[in-house]
């Protein structure tokens, strides 16, 4: 009985070992593929972000304003900007200040 149980345990361990080895290899491959995908996506993201940063820079936006909006966009002074609070369907207008205590 003792011998039998030891043999069973060995067989079980062989089986488990094989399973673990295979799953490990599979996970390893998946990780590698994912890492490669992330690396390529990260590169694409960085390039797109660089393009976005360039196109959304103040210099470019002012250029676009001149080209497409002309007088549609106007400079606002701080006194013309208000904070609107909606408290129980009642609108409250507050002055925008540099420091809110």
């Amino acid at each position: 009985m003792k011998k039998f149980s030891v043999i069973c345990l060995i067989l079980f361990l062989i089986l488990i070992t094989a399973l673990i080895k295979n799953s490990t290899k599979r996970i390893d491959d998946e990780i590698f593929a994912k890492e490669e995908n992330i690396r390529s996506l990260k590169k694409d993201f960085e390039n797109i972000k660089l393009e976005y940063d360039y196109l959304s820079s103040a210099e470019k936006l002012l250029e676009f304003q001149d080209l497409y909006f002309e007088n549609d966009l106007v400079k606002k002074s701080i006194q013309e900007i208000k904070i609107i609070n909606n408290k129980s369907n009642k609108l409250e207008f507050k002055k925008l200040k540099l420091i809110n205590d």
Binding site: K76, I78, I81, I83, K94, L96, K97, L98, N100
Partner: peptide
Amino acid sequence: PILATKYSKIN
């Protein structure tokens, strides 16, 4: 206006 909106907490 940028400092007031971007650098201050608006309640």
